[in-house]
């Protein structure tokens, strides 16, 4: 088990190194960083001074090593548009994105599994077929449309929930303020979280349903029935656990996507998170923010994959034997 963890960690490290090379190349060669930073009337001498002060005259390999060194110490440079350290800008927005993604992931996971199990246990029920058709809509409608529809229904027509923004914040640390402690915070979180989670929820629901139907047909379920095990035990202890391995794979990847692609939802709801910052950075060619965001998302996917791999081994003993 420990050997496996170490092996996976080394693999993750390799992936991160490759991604940081990409981020570095983008940082260094997508346009001239000096031109991005100085005004039009700066003299050539002043430009050269800036270039040297930033170390941009050094060999590429040295620059990359320095870049990695800075990344490890969480120094990602200064944003061109805000003239502030990227670390500070992202840290301020991290709480917004993480809270949104976390709540969206929980909603989609919980509702997806519950509805999926329900429709697998009642495959011919009316509610199940309704869920199937509705979920098709959920899978095929684009996120921004769902967001706008929800805003129209709950904010414009009914006036129950705020249409945009993040309110009811309570500061926890210097960079971290949470909206999860006030009703107002939850109100403004609700619509974006639903919008962000809906696609994943329908995906998880359909996956759980089909996997569960598959497992319910297996011999060990039939044998369980024949040994007189109670239904609830068979469904939740035997069947559900066996559906979880493929479900966890998808869920793991989807949690990464939820955070990475919260961009659209954050834009629709003007949610002050990293996605919104990233979009502004793209519009203004703010390379330090873009490359840092790239690194952050890569780190996220690598971490989630690592966790998923470890959970597999925890759930399925056959994999544990294969690995050792």
């Amino acid at each position: 088990m420990i050997a496996l963890v170490i092996r996976r960690l080394l693999q993750s490290l390799a992936v991160m190194l490759v991604v940081s090379l990409l981020a570095f190349v983008m940082f260094r060669y997508a346009g001239d960083p000096v031109n991005q930073m100085v005004g039009a009337e700066t003299t050539a001498a002043e430009r050269q001074a800036v270039r040297e002060s930033l170390g941009l005259d050094q060999p590429t390999l040295v620059q990359f090593a320095r870049y990695v060194g800075r990344v490890v110490t969480l120094d990602f440079g200064v944003s061109y548009q805000f003239r502030q350290p990227v670390t500070k800008l992202l840290a301020e927005r991290l709480s917004a994105t993480l809270e949104l993604s976390f709540v969206a992931a929980l909603i989609s996971l919980f509702a997806g599994i519950v509805l999926g199990v329900y429709s697998a246990l009642n495959p011919r029920g009316r509610i199940s077929s309704l869920l199937q058709s509705v979920s098709l809509v959920g899978v095929s409608l684009p996120t921004f449309l769902i967001g706008i529809l929800l805003i129209y229904i709950f904010s414009v027509s009914l006036g129950w929930l705020p249409a945009f923004g993040r309110n009811g914040l309570i500061p926890v640390t210097e960079n971290w303020s949470t909206g999860l402690l006030t009703i107002e915070g939850w109100k403004s979180l609700f619509l974006p979280a639903i919008t962000l989670g809906l696609f994943q929820m329908t995906l998880i629901m359909r996956l759980v349903r089909s996997e569960m139907l598959e497992v319910l047909r297996t011999d060990f379920i039939k044998f369980g029935v024949a040994r007189g095990l109670p239904r609830a035990r068979l469904y939740f202890r035997h069947a559900l656990k066996n559906t979880l391995v493929p479900v966890i794979t998808v869920v793991g990847l989807q949690i990464g996507s939820i955070i990475a692609f919260s961009i659209i939802t954050e834009t629709v709801f003007q949610w002050p998170g990293m996605g919104l910052l990233f979009l502004q950075a793209v519009q203004n060619v703010d390379i330090p923010i873009i490359s840092t965001y790239l690194l952050l998302i890569a780190l996220l996917f690598v971490t989630v994959n690592l966790i998923v791999d470890l959970i597999y081994n925890f759930i399925d003993p056959r994999l544990k034997d294969a690995a050792s």
Partner: peptide
């Protein structure tokens, strides 16, 4: 009690 044909699939692998 009941026993089925295929012992390989009659037991929950997990």
């Amino acid at each position: 009690g009941m026993i089925f044909q295929d012992p390989l699939t009659s037991l929950n692998p997990l």
